[in-house]
Design a protein around this nucleic acid. Structure first.
Length: 418
RNA sequence: GGAGGAGUGCCCGAGUGGCUAAAGGGGGCGGACUGUAAAUCCGCUGGCUAUGCCUACGUUGGUUCGAAUCCAACCUCCUCCA
């Protein structure tokens, strides 16, 4: 960007790599200088927790608040009933209202760690559910008041739905309405809360622009949109997957240790970028750490893991995760923070096969995979290669916690409970 | 409503009566190399109480000793027409 912003928020967004595009850099910048700007990001409730793919959005709201503005976290209680088709190859399964409520409850937990909803100033954040205005819409009124502002011709031209239209997959009318509902959200947030800005990933650009147009037409208000880059790791993978699935932000969905490990395993080339996006370390520090060469950059990865985990799960959790990681990887020992399963004597009975234990410990999905792992010499028990796939484990073997390993990186503890 | 095309394993995609748990690729997992990195190379990749059994090629039935493969009906999607 050649634009030199006057506002702290825009400056941070640009310097730290959050900015992919903005509908009007200069006007938005001026609004940010003039006063408190309420800005929102919407989160659909498709799972019980958000994952690291949404973390960049959360960090944007956090910076927004830190630079003196007002974050609005919009929970998509209404829009989730429709499902966002943007850049998706197929239709999502519809969630029931109960599932959606459950998911919202889970997602809410994580925001409190990043955003202050109790601030006693103009930057106090608010959390709103768009079900508030979407659930009770009257179809005909909505079509007449809002629908008339949308051109189907134009809607069909959006990149976000193009792949669906071009290819053999259908786009249901239900999903097609998503962009109208999201546009309407922006309008309502402007009307009700004076919201001036919507942020989101660059895949949301079309939806955001629609909201801006709609608000201008209906209320004659100028509002703004700002998008973050769609994050992939430098080796071209989507952000947020790792060894065993999605990287959830909620600690009840993914342990702090595993969360920490995800960041510790960042690809070299991403370290500097991630430090800027996902931590609040000074820029120079991010750059210095990201520029470390060879094995020195491992120290930077530890800093990254500590900082991100601290924000998400708290300082204690970060410390415990680091301690366990050091114990496990540097000394080849064990640590309390490793994923642990507890078995009762009853579970074990006369003995349980090692194959079953490996499955129960969550290191593999099936007994067959466990056997494969063993035959490939990837399984270890207390750090000794496991050769006998038929090995039985008795309660006596679990006097001390047993450490099971799958490959070099994945470990779990098995304890006897009670 | 009419005509034509399509529906395969986590994904893409070959197969068009037995040799098919189904080529190839991607992804994933394990190994080597390293730095708990990347790239590269090698191997594995449906499940189970396992010399056998179960599940699987849109769904349901049928033909056959035998079907992903043939037939019928249905469902869904795509393209064109109304």
């Amino acid at each position: 960007m050649t634009y030199h912003p006057k506002s702290d928020f825009m400056r941070v967004m640009i310097e730290r790599g959050f900015l992919a595009d903005c509908t009007d850099y200069q006007s938005l910048d001026e609004a940010l200088v003039e006063g408190v700007v309420p800005a929102y990001i919407g989160f659909d409730a498709t799972a019980k927790s958000l994952h690291v793919g949404s973390l960049i959005q959360i960090m944007m709201l956090r910076w927004l608040q830190k630079t003196g503005h007002k974050p609005i976290t919009l929970m998509g209680g209404g829009t989730t009933k429709v499902g966002d088709p943007s850049f998706r190859a197929d239709e999502r399964p519809l969630l029931t209202p109960d599932q959606i409520d459950d998911n919202i409850a889970g997602i809410k937990k994580v925001f409190a760690n990043y955003i202050d909803y109790d601030a006693e100033n103009d930057s106090k954040a608010v959390m709103i559910n768009n079900a508030e205005w979407l659930d009770d819409l009257n179809y005909l009124d909505f079509l007449r008041d809002i629908g008339r502002h949308f051109s189907v011709n134009r809607m069909l031209s959006f990149e976000s739905v193009k792949s669906r239209l071009d290819r053999e997959q259908s786009l249901s009318f239900l999903e097609f309405n998503y962009m109208i509902l999201q546009a309407y959200d922006f309008l309502e947030l402007n009307r009700r809360y004076g919201c001036l800005l919507q942020m989101g990933g660059s895949d949301q650009w079309g939806n955001i622009v629609n909201g801006i147009d709609l608000t201008r037409r209906v209320l004659d208000n100028q509002i703004f949109g700002l998008t973050s880059p769609l994050l992939t790791t430098s080796d071209g993978k989507k952000m947020g997957k790792s060894l065993s699935g999605a990287i959830w932000l909620n600690s009840d969905m993914l342990s702090s240790y595993e969360f920490w490990q995800f960041w510790r395993n960042t690809t070299d080339a991403d370290v500097g970028r991630f430090l800027k996006l996902y931590t609040e370390l000074p820029l120079e520090e991010c750059e210095r750490l990201g520029a470390l060469e060879g094995s020195d950059i491992n120290d930077a990865k530890i800093v990254l893991a500590n900082e991100v985990t601290k924000l998400a799960h708290g300082e204690e959790a970060a410390k415990a995760a680091e301690a366990t990681a050091r114990e496990v990887f540097e000394k080849g020992g064990t640590g309390d923070d490793l994923p642990t399963i507890s078995l009762t004597a009853q579970d074990i009975g006369d003995g349980i096969s090692i194959v079953q234990l490996i499955v129960k410990a969550g290191l593999v999905k099936s007994g067959k995979e466990a056997k494969r792992l063993i035959s490939e010499n990837g399984a270890r028990v207390n750090d000794a290669p496991l050769e006998d796939a038929g090995m039985m484990v008795s309660t006596d073997d679990l006097e001390l916690p047993m450490k099971l390993s799958a490959g070099k990186k994945r470990h779990a503890l098995v304890r006897l409970d009670g």
